[in-house]
Amino acid sequence: MVEQQRIEPADNGTSGKGGGRARKSSFLSEAWKRRLPLLPAFLIVVVLTQVPFLMSIYFSLTRWRANTAEPREFIGVDNYIDLVSNSFFWSAAWNSILMTVVSVGLSLLFGTGLALLLDRKFFGQGFARTLIITPFLVMPVVAGLVWKNQMLNSSFGVINWFIEGLGMEPISFASRYPLWTIVVVLVWQWTPFMMLIILAGLQGQSSSVLEAAKVDGANGVSTFFQITLPHLRSYLELGALLGVIYLSQVYDHIRVITRGTGSANLPYFVYLRSIGGGWQFGAASAYSIVVVIFSFIIANFGLRVLSGLLTDEGA
Protein backbone atom coordinates (compact mmCIF):
# COMPACT_ATOMS: atom_id res chain seq x y z
CA MET A 1 0.00 0.00 0.00
CA VAL A 2 2.54 2.56 1.17
CA GLU A 3 4.92 1.78 -1.63
CA GLN A 4 2.23 2.08 -4.23
CA GLN A 5 1.32 5.53 -2.99
CA ARG A 6 4.93 6.52 -3.20
CA ILE A 7 5.20 5.36 -6.78
CA GLU A 8 2.01 6.95 -8.04
CA PRO A 9 2.96 10.65 -7.84
CA ALA A 10 6.24 10.00 -9.67
CA ASP A 11 4.32 8.13 -12.31
CA ASN A 12 1.84 10.94 -12.71
CA GLY A 13 4.59 13.51 -12.78
CA THR A 14 6.15 12.07 -15.89
CA SER A 15 2.94 11.26 -17.73
CA GLY A 16 1.39 14.55 -16.67
CA LYS A 17 4.11 16.65 -18.28
CA GLY A 18 3.83 14.89 -21.60
CA GLY A 19 0.09 14.49 -21.69
CA GLY A 20 -0.92 17.76 -20.07
CA ARG A 21 -0.41 19.90 -23.13
CA ALA A 22 -1.79 17.40 -25.58
CA ARG A 23 -5.09 17.03 -23.73
CA LYS A 24 -6.17 20.53 -22.75
CA SER A 25 -9.68 19.43 -21.90
CA SER A 26 -8.59 17.70 -18.71
CA PHE A 27 -8.32 20.44 -16.10
CA LEU A 28 -7.65 18.01 -13.24
CA SER A 29 -4.36 16.20 -12.83
CA GLU A 30 -4.44 12.39 -12.76
CA ALA A 31 -3.70 12.39 -9.03
CA TRP A 32 -6.65 14.62 -8.19
CA LYS A 33 -8.95 12.63 -10.43
CA ARG A 34 -8.25 9.77 -8.08
CA ARG A 35 -8.29 11.74 -4.85
CA LEU A 36 -11.43 13.77 -5.42
CA PRO A 37 -13.97 10.94 -5.22
CA LEU A 38 -12.39 9.83 -1.93
CA LEU A 39 -12.46 13.30 -0.43
CA PRO A 40 -16.05 13.32 0.96
CA ALA A 41 -15.55 10.02 2.76
CA PHE A 42 -12.22 11.20 4.07
CA LEU A 43 -13.73 14.44 5.40
CA ILE A 44 -16.58 12.58 7.10
CA VAL A 45 -14.14 10.22 8.80
CA VAL A 46 -12.04 13.14 10.02
CA VAL A 47 -15.06 15.08 11.31
CA LEU A 48 -16.60 12.07 13.04
CA THR A 49 -13.48 10.54 14.59
CA GLN A 50 -10.50 12.85 14.74
CA VAL A 51 -12.32 15.99 15.81
CA PRO A 52 -14.15 14.32 18.73
CA PHE A 53 -10.88 12.70 19.74
CA LEU A 54 -9.13 16.04 19.90
CA MET A 55 -12.08 17.45 21.86
CA SER A 56 -11.84 14.51 24.27
CA ILE A 57 -8.20 15.27 24.87
CA TYR A 58 -9.17 18.83 25.76
CA PHE A 59 -12.09 17.69 27.98
CA SER A 60 -9.79 15.28 29.78
CA LEU A 61 -7.82 18.27 30.97
CA THR A 62 -10.87 19.96 32.48
CA ARG A 63 -13.19 19.52 35.44
CA TRP A 64 -16.61 19.22 33.84
CA ARG A 65 -19.62 17.85 35.61
CA ALA A 66 -22.74 17.85 33.51
CA ASN A 67 -25.17 17.59 36.42
CA THR A 68 -24.10 20.73 38.29
CA ALA A 69 -24.08 24.37 37.31
CA GLU A 70 -20.30 24.64 37.71
CA PRO A 71 -18.63 25.97 34.59
CA ARG A 72 -16.05 23.84 32.77
CA GLU A 73 -12.64 24.54 34.27
CA PHE A 74 -9.15 23.75 32.97
CA ILE A 75 -7.25 21.71 35.57
CA GLY A 76 -4.30 20.27 33.62
CA VAL A 77 -3.45 16.62 34.24
CA ASP A 78 -5.31 16.36 37.56
CA ASN A 79 -7.81 13.87 36.09
CA TYR A 80 -4.95 11.56 35.08
CA ILE A 81 -3.35 11.85 38.54
CA ASP A 82 -6.67 11.00 40.23
CA LEU A 83 -6.94 8.01 37.93
CA VAL A 84 -3.78 6.43 39.31
CA SER A 85 -5.13 6.43 42.88
CA ASN A 86 -8.65 5.41 41.92
CA SER A 87 -9.26 1.80 43.02
CA PHE A 88 -12.37 1.51 40.80
CA PHE A 89 -10.22 2.31 37.81
CA TRP A 90 -7.69 -0.35 38.72
CA SER A 91 -10.34 -2.95 39.33
CA ALA A 92 -11.92 -2.08 35.98
CA ALA A 93 -8.52 -2.32 34.32
CA TRP A 94 -7.93 -5.73 35.91
CA ASN A 95 -11.40 -6.89 34.84
CA SER A 96 -10.65 -5.70 31.32
CA ILE A 97 -7.42 -7.65 31.14
CA LEU A 98 -8.83 -10.80 32.71
CA MET A 99 -11.98 -10.77 30.61
CA THR A 100 -10.10 -10.11 27.37
CA VAL A 101 -7.24 -12.55 27.87
CA VAL A 102 -9.38 -15.44 29.09
CA SER A 103 -12.10 -14.94 26.45
CA VAL A 104 -9.61 -14.63 23.61
CA GLY A 105 -7.59 -17.61 24.83
CA LEU A 106 -10.59 -19.88 25.24
CA SER A 107 -12.26 -18.87 21.98
CA LEU A 108 -8.99 -19.48 20.13
CA LEU A 109 -8.71 -22.91 21.71
CA PHE A 110 -12.29 -23.90 20.91
CA GLY A 111 -12.12 -22.18 17.51
CA THR A 112 -9.04 -24.22 16.57
CA GLY A 113 -10.74 -27.42 17.69
CA LEU A 114 -13.85 -26.69 15.65
CA ALA A 115 -11.80 -25.63 12.64
CA LEU A 116 -9.92 -28.93 12.73
CA LEU A 117 -13.22 -30.78 12.83
CA LEU A 118 -14.68 -28.76 9.97
CA ASP A 119 -11.56 -29.01 7.81
CA ARG A 120 -12.54 -32.39 6.45
CA LYS A 121 -15.21 -33.47 4.06
CA PHE A 122 -18.37 -34.90 5.57
CA PHE A 123 -22.06 -34.92 4.77
CA GLY A 124 -23.71 -31.66 5.85
CA GLN A 125 -20.41 -29.80 6.15
CA GLY A 126 -21.80 -26.52 4.85
CA PHE A 127 -24.81 -26.74 7.14
CA ALA A 128 -22.65 -27.46 10.18
CA ARG A 129 -20.37 -24.56 9.33
CA THR A 130 -23.30 -22.16 9.01
CA LEU A 131 -24.72 -23.30 12.35
CA ILE A 132 -21.40 -22.86 14.10
CA ILE A 133 -20.96 -19.36 12.71
CA THR A 134 -24.42 -18.27 13.89
CA PRO A 135 -23.42 -17.05 17.40
CA PHE A 136 -21.09 -14.53 15.80
CA LEU A 137 -23.98 -13.11 13.79
CA VAL A 138 -26.17 -12.53 16.84
CA MET A 139 -26.25 -8.94 18.11
CA PRO A 140 -24.28 -8.61 21.37
CA VAL A 141 -27.32 -7.26 23.25
CA VAL A 142 -29.47 -10.15 22.04
CA ALA A 143 -26.76 -12.65 22.94
CA GLY A 144 -26.54 -11.11 26.40
CA LEU A 145 -30.31 -11.30 26.91
CA VAL A 146 -30.59 -14.86 25.65
CA TRP A 147 -27.87 -16.04 27.99
CA LYS A 148 -29.08 -14.03 30.93
CA ASN A 149 -32.68 -15.23 30.69
CA GLN A 150 -33.17 -18.39 28.68
CA MET A 151 -29.87 -20.00 29.64
CA LEU A 152 -28.75 -18.81 33.03
CA ASN A 153 -31.83 -17.50 34.88
CA SER A 154 -32.00 -19.12 38.31
CA SER A 155 -35.73 -19.94 38.12
CA PHE A 156 -36.38 -20.75 34.47
CA GLY A 157 -32.98 -20.95 32.73
CA VAL A 158 -32.09 -24.08 30.76
CA ILE A 159 -28.82 -24.64 32.57
CA ASN A 160 -30.42 -24.41 36.00
CA TRP A 161 -33.11 -26.81 34.80
CA PHE A 162 -30.31 -29.32 34.21
CA ILE A 163 -28.67 -28.53 37.53
CA GLU A 164 -31.95 -29.01 39.37
CA GLY A 165 -32.51 -32.18 37.41
CA LEU A 166 -29.26 -33.46 38.90
CA GLY A 167 -30.68 -32.71 42.34
CA MET A 168 -28.63 -29.61 43.08
CA GLU A 169 -29.58 -26.10 44.12
CA PRO A 170 -30.02 -23.62 41.25
CA ILE A 171 -27.23 -21.11 40.84
CA SER A 172 -27.83 -17.49 39.93
CA PHE A 173 -24.77 -17.26 37.74
CA ALA A 174 -24.97 -13.59 36.84
CA SER A 175 -24.83 -12.42 40.44
CA ARG A 176 -22.55 -15.10 41.90
CA TYR A 177 -20.00 -15.30 39.06
CA PRO A 178 -20.57 -12.06 37.13
CA LEU A 179 -17.19 -11.87 35.43
CA TRP A 180 -17.14 -15.52 34.39
CA THR A 181 -20.70 -15.33 33.13
CA ILE A 182 -19.62 -12.54 30.80
CA VAL A 183 -16.58 -14.59 29.76
CA VAL A 184 -18.77 -17.57 28.87
CA VAL A 185 -20.99 -15.42 26.64
CA LEU A 186 -17.99 -13.78 25.00
CA VAL A 187 -16.36 -17.14 24.31
CA TRP A 188 -19.64 -18.41 22.85
CA GLN A 189 -19.83 -15.40 20.53
CA TRP A 190 -16.19 -15.23 19.51
CA THR A 191 -15.33 -18.89 19.04
CA PRO A 192 -16.94 -18.87 15.54
CA PHE A 193 -14.85 -15.86 14.54
CA MET A 194 -11.64 -17.57 15.63
CA MET A 195 -12.79 -20.74 13.91
CA LEU A 196 -13.21 -18.87 10.62
CA ILE A 197 -9.69 -17.46 10.78
CA ILE A 198 -8.12 -20.78 11.74
CA LEU A 199 -10.17 -22.60 9.11
CA ALA A 200 -8.84 -20.21 6.48
CA GLY A 201 -5.36 -21.06 7.71
CA LEU A 202 -6.00 -24.79 7.58
CA GLN A 203 -7.41 -24.61 4.10
CA GLY A 204 -4.38 -22.62 3.00
CA GLN A 205 -2.12 -25.48 4.02
CA SER A 206 -0.87 -27.51 1.10
CA SER A 207 -2.29 -31.02 1.21
CA SER A 208 0.93 -32.47 -0.18
CA VAL A 209 2.82 -31.16 2.87
CA LEU A 210 0.52 -33.22 5.06
CA GLU A 211 0.96 -36.21 2.76
CA ALA A 212 4.73 -35.77 2.90
CA ALA A 213 4.52 -35.84 6.71
CA LYS A 214 2.49 -39.03 6.52
CA VAL A 215 5.04 -40.67 4.23
CA ASP A 216 7.81 -39.44 6.53
CA GLY A 217 6.22 -41.42 9.32
CA ALA A 218 4.54 -38.71 11.39
CA ASN A 219 1.28 -39.65 13.11
CA GLY A 220 -1.69 -37.30 13.46
CA VAL A 221 -0.60 -35.74 16.74
CA SER A 222 2.97 -35.04 15.74
CA THR A 223 1.84 -33.74 12.34
CA PHE A 224 -0.43 -31.29 14.15
CA PHE A 225 2.17 -30.03 16.60
CA GLN A 226 5.18 -30.03 14.28
CA ILE A 227 3.63 -28.93 11.01
CA THR A 228 0.08 -27.62 11.26
CA LEU A 229 0.49 -25.55 14.42
CA PRO A 230 3.62 -23.70 13.19
CA HIS A 231 1.73 -23.04 9.94
CA LEU A 232 -1.23 -21.66 11.93
CA ARG A 233 0.94 -19.45 14.10
CA SER A 234 0.35 -16.25 12.20
CA TYR A 235 -3.37 -17.00 11.93
CA LEU A 236 -3.54 -17.57 15.68
CA GLU A 237 -1.71 -14.28 16.23
CA LEU A 238 -4.10 -12.47 13.94
CA GLY A 239 -7.11 -13.99 15.71
CA ALA A 240 -5.67 -13.12 19.10
CA LEU A 241 -5.00 -9.52 18.13
CA LEU A 242 -8.35 -8.88 16.50
CA GLY A 243 -9.98 -10.55 19.48
CA VAL A 244 -8.09 -8.38 21.94
CA ILE A 245 -8.98 -5.23 20.03
CA TYR A 246 -12.69 -6.06 20.01
CA LEU A 247 -13.04 -7.74 23.37
CA SER A 248 -11.22 -5.02 25.28
CA GLN A 249 -14.10 -2.75 24.16
CA VAL A 250 -16.97 -4.96 25.30
CA TYR A 251 -19.88 -2.99 26.67
CA ASP A 252 -23.20 -4.47 25.56
CA HIS A 253 -22.89 -7.83 27.30
CA ILE A 254 -21.97 -6.23 30.60
CA ARG A 255 -24.75 -3.70 30.37
CA VAL A 256 -27.36 -6.39 29.72
CA ILE A 257 -26.19 -9.21 31.98
CA THR A 258 -24.67 -7.67 35.11
CA ARG A 259 -24.92 -3.91 34.73
CA GLY A 260 -21.31 -3.78 35.76
CA THR A 261 -21.59 -5.42 39.15
CA GLY A 262 -18.33 -7.24 39.73
CA SER A 263 -17.58 -7.21 36.02
CA ALA A 264 -17.12 -3.61 34.91
CA ASN A 265 -14.28 -3.23 32.42
CA LEU A 266 -12.70 0.03 31.34
CA PRO A 267 -15.26 1.02 28.71
CA TYR A 268 -18.06 0.27 31.17
CA PHE A 269 -16.25 2.28 33.81
CA VAL A 270 -16.04 5.20 31.39
CA TYR A 271 -19.75 4.83 30.79
CA LEU A 272 -20.55 4.76 34.52
CA ARG A 273 -18.49 7.89 35.12
CA SER A 274 -20.14 9.81 32.30
CA ILE A 275 -23.61 9.25 30.85
CA GLY A 276 -24.13 6.18 33.06
CA GLY A 277 -24.88 8.33 36.10
CA GLY A 278 -21.53 9.91 37.04
CA TRP A 279 -21.80 12.83 34.63
CA GLN A 280 -18.11 13.60 35.16
CA PHE A 281 -17.27 14.20 31.55
CA GLY A 282 -13.81 15.58 32.28
CA ALA A 283 -12.64 12.55 34.27
CA ALA A 284 -14.39 10.10 31.94
CA SER A 285 -12.59 11.68 28.99
CA ALA A 286 -9.28 11.06 30.74
CA TYR A 287 -10.17 7.38 31.22
CA SER A 288 -11.19 6.99 27.64
CA ILE A 289 -7.97 8.58 26.44
CA VAL A 290 -6.05 5.98 28.43
CA VAL A 291 -8.17 3.23 26.86
CA VAL A 292 -7.58 4.66 23.39
CA ILE A 293 -3.82 4.76 23.94
CA PHE A 294 -3.80 1.11 24.96
CA SER A 295 -6.03 0.12 22.07
CA PHE A 296 -3.80 2.06 19.70
CA ILE A 297 -0.71 0.19 20.85
CA ILE A 298 -2.46 -3.16 20.47
CA ALA A 299 -3.90 -2.23 17.07
CA ASN A 300 -0.54 -1.11 15.76
CA PHE A 301 1.00 -4.35 16.84
CA GLY A 302 -1.91 -6.18 15.22
CA LEU A 303 -1.46 -4.44 11.89
CA ARG A 304 2.20 -5.33 11.88
CA VAL A 305 1.32 -8.98 12.41
CA LEU A 306 -1.29 -8.77 9.67
CA SER A 307 1.13 -7.34 7.13
CA GLY A 308 3.71 -9.91 8.18
CA LEU A 309 1.14 -12.60 7.52
CA LEU A 310 0.41 -11.30 4.04
CA THR A 311 4.07 -11.02 3.00
CA ASP A 312 4.80 -14.43 4.49
CA GLU A 313 2.09 -16.07 2.44
CA GLY A 314 3.12 -14.24 -0.68
CA ALA A 315 6.64 -15.64 -0.56
Partner: peptide, 28 residues
Amino acid sequence: PQQRDIAMVFQNYALYPQMTVAGNMGFA
Protein backbone atom coordinates in the same frame (compact mmCIF):
# COMPACT_ATOMS: atom_id res chain seq x y z
CA PRO B 1 2.14 -44.77 4.45
CA GLN B 2 4.13 -44.65 7.71
CA GLN B 3 4.44 -48.44 7.76
CA ARG B 4 5.63 -48.93 4.19
CA ASP B 5 9.21 -47.68 4.47
CA ILE B 6 9.00 -45.58 1.35
CA ALA B 7 10.11 -42.03 0.63
CA MET B 8 8.33 -39.75 -1.77
CA VAL B 9 9.34 -36.68 -3.73
CA PHE B 10 6.36 -34.53 -4.62
CA GLN B 11 5.85 -32.41 -7.71
CA ASN B 12 5.66 -29.20 -5.66
CA TYR B 13 8.32 -30.63 -3.28
CA ALA B 14 5.94 -30.30 -0.28
CA LEU B 15 8.72 -29.00 1.95
CA TYR B 16 7.75 -28.09 5.50
CA PRO B 17 7.73 -24.29 5.23
CA GLN B 18 8.41 -23.55 8.89
CA MET B 19 11.43 -25.83 9.12
CA THR B 20 14.99 -25.26 7.97
CA VAL B 21 16.56 -27.41 5.28
CA ALA B 22 18.16 -29.53 8.00
CA GLY B 23 14.82 -29.78 9.80
CA ASN B 24 13.11 -30.89 6.62
CA MET B 25 15.70 -33.53 5.87
CA GLY B 26 15.82 -34.82 9.43
CA PHE B 27 12.06 -34.87 9.99
CA ALA B 28 11.49 -38.51 9.09
